[in-house]
């Protein structure tokens, strides 16, 4: 279970000829794509509230650039809430607010006068349920972020972005002949890869994933995991997962959240390299959780 995740990723890296053109573009042609060195996130003493309810308390952690950081923990421990606070999505809930700092490469995203919309353009998100826009075609779904944000964009340029995003999400060969068909006609796994393509098409610095595989079958899950391993070449990735094997396989760092009693705020127990967390965790609570002796 706590196999070294590096092996898995190396295996993926070697058998990915499908993705060759993108890999070249991402690694050797910085002039082509906008800055591919992703940004880091630093949370400092972050407290998250829903109205009077204190959901997450005192979280400080560093999320390293171009790495995959997994957030694990039992249900209700605040890991999803924490994830959503990283791009100010959680404040869409009425009465929700945070106390503390979240810095994207040193700039506080909660600083006064910061537009949450601008934050979300740099920190994209993939959700638990695949949610392609039902009124749009596959092409339009991928292009949605660019079209809706930038007024004028030339058709050939857009074609290129859409193709690159779909190739990057390993979806291009499956959908290239049906780009004008609705995204809702795809299978669940394809829809989720479409959503990943849509999120990456706007070239954010960070990609947040909220249990992206929990609605998918094992084969689609493997496809997404190998995709994540490639995406970290270009993005910083934070992934919430209930699946500890997934955290072990797909992440570089793992953060364990826990909740003492129901009603208490969730807390960060520890964060470390994934191998360390799954072999020699510092906290007995982490060990209990990852070995399945937990509640």
């Amino acid at each position: 279970m706590s196999q070294p995740s590096a092996d898995v990723r190396d295996a993926n890296a070697t058998d990915a000829p499908l993705q060759a053109p993108l890999g070249d573009a991402a690694t050797s042609a910085p002039a082509e794509a906008p800055a591919n060195v992703a940004k880091s996130i630093e949370a400092r003493d972050l407290d998250i509230y829903y109205g009077g309810f204190h959901a997450v308390a005192g979280v400080s952690m560093t999320i390293r650039p171009n790495k995959v950081t997994a957030l694990i923990g039992s249900s209700g421990c605040g890991k999803s809430t924490f994830l959503r606070s990283l791009n100010r999505m959680h404040e869409l809930v009425k009465g929700a607010y945070v106390d503390g700092k979240v810095e994207l490469d040193g700039r506080d995203i909660y600083a006064a006068g910061t537009d949450p919309v601008a934050v979300r353009r740099q920190i994209g998100m993939v959700f638990q349920q695949p949610n392609p826009f039902p009124t749009m075609s596959i092409y339009d779904n991928v292009a949605a972020g660019l079209r809706l944000n930038r007024r004028k964009i030339k058709k050939p340029e857009l074609d290129e972005v859409v193709e690159r995003a779909l190739r990057g999400a390993h979806l291009w060969t499956e959908v290239k002949d049906r780009l004008d068909k609705p995204g809702s006609g795809l299978s669940g796994g394809q829809q989720q890869r479409l959503c990943i393509a849509r999120a990456t098409a706007v070239e954010p610095d960070v990609l947040l994933m909220d249990e992206p595989c929990s609605a998918l079958d094992p084969i689609a899950t493997v496809a997404i995991e190998s995709l994540i391993a490639e995406l970290k070449e270009r993005f910083t990735i934070v992934i919430v997962t209930h699946n500890m094997q997934q955290a072990a396989r797909a992440s570089d760092y793992t953060a364990f959240f826990n909740i003492e009693r129901s009603g208490d705020p969730g807390r960060l127990v520890e964060i470390d390299e994934t191998q360390t967390i799954f072999s020699t965790p510092a906290s007995p609570a982490t060990e209990a959780y990852i070995s399945g002796r937990f509640g």
Partner: peptide, 11 residues
Amino acid sequence: HLREAAYGLGV
């Protein structure tokens, strides 16, 4: 979740 998907894109 459709609204959230759009917000997540920075719309």
